[in-house]
């Protein structure tokens, strides 16, 4: 009876959710069942993938053992975590500074003009960005090698093989691309601050610097926490576009550009090793999952309202 009344009352709700539910089921939940591939050594004697799956040998943790035996596991974990941590810090500091500075500009027109330009890279795809980087760094024709370095009397550099340079290039590219997005968010938050605070501060004789440090920044902190938390939740997931497109798949750069996402992609697509690739994927999902919980727990202890869940 209860089923019926529930259905009568909320039947329409189920119908409304059906398309979204199906998509989630197929796009997200069915693949979760597929993670068992990570514990198999896939061979392909049948034409049906399910039969192959059933017939493939269980190898237990073999794929994981193998993953951690090579230095790859360490390198991709290190790269993913270090780059993402750096990105989080840069995406916090620079946009906040930019937002405050832009807000202080006297000319409204100039403020709008700069905001437009700074925001522009955010809407460009990684393909376009990789073109732009290529135009600058191409070793024979790139602008840096043909114009900038000669001006300083420096020999051209083969950027796409220069391992030492990429730990700087990646954060630079990432920051230029994303700074506009965060800046706009922080500007919106600054606009939301009541002018009375500043008026009172001016009357008390506070200078600009004091106003920024004592009013603007403290009031921005909740937004900063939310934006940072959202990124920490994804700290084990790298931006595939950045790491795949911008270094142009250059082999010698792998030690500083290979991240978990590119590794998963390459082991599957290039080596066709579904077991190893799944193992790396499952490693990413699991550790990512734990990190989200840890960071959320941590935030919850400090400030309950800022927690994600």
């Amino acid at each position: 009876m209860a089923i019926r009344s529930n259905l009568r009352k909320y039947g329409m709700f189920y119908l409304m959710m059906l398309p979204g539910f199906l998509i989630l089921l197929v796009n997200n939940y069915l693949p979760m069942a597929g993670i068992v591939i990570a514990f198999k050594s896939m061979t392909y004697q049948h034409s049906n993938i399910l039969l192959n799956f059933v017939d493939s040998e269980w190898v237990g943790l073999e794929n994981f053992k193998y993953l951690f035996k090579t230095s790859d596991a360490w390198i991709i974990t290190r790269n993913t975590l270090l780059y993402n941590s750096l990105f989080i810090v840069l995406n916090l500091i620079i946009p906040v500074i930019f937002a405050i500075m832009l807000n202080e500009l006297r000319s409204k027109f100039l403020a709008r003009f700069h905001q437009s330009i700074i925001f522009l890279p955010y809407i460009l795809s990684w393909i376009v960005v990789s073109y732009l980087v290529y135009g600058l760094l191409h070793d024979k024709n790139g602008f840096v090698n043909t114009t900038i370095l000669p001006a300083f009397g420096v020999d051209p550099v083969q950027w796409y093989f220069k391992v030492e340079a990429w730990p700087y290039i990646m954060p630079l590219v990432n920051t230029v691309k994303n700074v506009g997005y965060y800046m706009v968010i922080y500007m919106a938050a600054i606009i939301g601050i009541d002018d009375e605070y500043y008026e009172a501060a001016t009357i008390d004789g506070a200078n600009k610097w004091q106003q920024i440090m004592k009013i603007t920044i403290p009031l921005l902190i909740p937004v900063m926490i939310i934006m940072t938390l959202l990124q920490i939740g994804r700290i084990f997931y790298a931006d595939f576009g950045l790491f795949y497109q911008v270094p142009k798949e250059s082999g010698p750069l792998f030690p500083v550009t290979n991240v978990i996402d590119t590794y998963v992609y390459r082991t599957f697509i290039a080596m066709g090793d579904s077991g190893l690739s799944s193992a790396a994927g499952l490693y990413q999902s699991t550790v990512g999952f734990i990190l989200v919980f840890l960071s959320n727990w941590f935030v919850r202890r400090i400030d309950k309202d800022s927690a994600l869940f």
Partner: peptide, 23 residues
């Protein structure tokens, strides 16, 4: 049901196989 997909995923391989072999 929807929130969990933000926390955990099955990875590239099964996802690819679902699209190519199942759908």
């Amino acid at each position: 049901f929807v929130f969990f997909t933000m926390l955990f995923n099955g990875g590239l391989v099964p996802w690819y196989l679902i699209y190519v072999r199942f759908l």
